[in-house]
């Protein structure tokens, strides 16, 4: 139990430090509208990060999540908007493909990194086919949800809290989540206990596909239209978010709440760098430095614990 607390303490602390720095530099951000502006683009990133986390949980990595989210965004802005039934079918087919990939990777013992890298070109191609020129429109109900102004807290924060809670229950508390983490920890023992690892891996990938769909929808709701390249950054952002949030590449050790916080931290890091007027030439490097600092801090904490 204590291990989980510590695992979460660091992401929470880094988010708090960054948030404090942003508030200090830009007091205007300390308001309902300000917080919403600061965090609303983090919602699709957080969803993509949870998708990535589900794949990392079973010891794989998904290099196609960025193009997949772009594809889902294009479907949302075109098919789902014009002919909702077809749109839902296509999105469901996307989830199906994700689940099938999980099964294929397990059955053929393929390296996930290669399969998903290949798939990233497939999703990218499909997105361009659907939307050769940027455009489309967001279905009204999605825009209404994303632009809602609930009392007390801005939508972005509400959405992130709901997401963290839901994925925590799914991954940490449910029997299914325990099994899935077991696949990442020791797939052979899960198989010996009589479970089908093929089915479990397919389940993990399928769930990742669902969160990818949600990410694409949320993104279109915010942007109001789509672009075949809209979410390319999400692949790396989502991996960084999972790791920043206390997850590890192996062993099924992930933290859903941490992953959401990691996504928020990364988004905030970008704003922070804009607020301090850092030249764009240095921004990517500076984002890397923030990542390395957090990871270094994690290593230090762990070393002290084992010492």
């Amino acid at each position: 139990m204590k291990g989980i607390d510590l695992r979460l303490a660091l992401p929470v602390l880094s988010l708090a430090v960054l948030l404090g720095a942003v508030f200090w530099m830009q007091p205007r951000a300390m308001s309902y509208t300000g917080l919403n502006l600061l965090f609303n683009l983090a919602v699709p990133i957080a969803l993509a990060t949870i998708a990535q986390m589900l794949v990392i949980m079973v010891d794989d990595i998904d290099l196609s999540i960025g193009t997949y989210v772009s594809f889902c965004a294009c479907v949302t802005a075109t098919l789902l908007h014009d002919t909702p039934v077809v749109g839902i079918l296509v999105l469901a087919a996307g989830v199906g493909v994700y689940a099938a990939l999980g099964a294929l990777i397990e059955l053929q013992k393929l390296p996930a990194i290669v399969v998903t890298l290949g798939m990233s070109f497939v999703w990218g191609g499909l997105a361009v086919l659907l939307l050769p020129a940027p455009g489309g429109a967001s279905p009204d109900w999605i825009t209404t949800i994303m632009k809602a102004r609930p009392p007390l807290m801005p939508m972005a924060i509400v959405a992130c809290i709901l997401l963290a809670l839901a994925s925590h229950l799914l991954v940490t508390r449910s029997a299914m989540g325990t099994l899935l983490r077991g696949v990442g920890g020791n797939a052979r023992s899960v198989a010996r206990a009589g479970w089908s690892v093929v089915r479990l891996r397919a389940l993990a990938y399928g769930l990742a596909g669902v969160f990818g769909v949600l990410s694409g929808m949320a993104l279109v709701g915010l942007a109001t239209s789509a672009d075949a390249n809209i979410a390319l950054r999400y692949t790396l952002l989502s991996i960084a978010g999972v790791i920043l949030g206390g997850g590890e590449f192996t062993g099924g050790r992930v933290s859903p709440v941490g992953a959401v916080i990691g996504a928020l931290t990364l988004t905030l890091a970008g704003s922070f760098l804009t607020f301090i007027r850092l030249s764009p030439d240095w921004q990517i490097g500076a984002q890397g430095v923030i990542l390395i600092l957090v990871l270094a801090a994690r290593l230090l904490v762990r070393r002290r614990r084992t010492a």
Binding site: L37, L41, L222, A223, Y234, G270, S271
Partner: peptide, 10 residues
Amino acid sequence: ATEQAAQIQN
């Protein structure tokens, strides 16, 4: 685009 959207919001 997503990066620039965040920039505009900032």
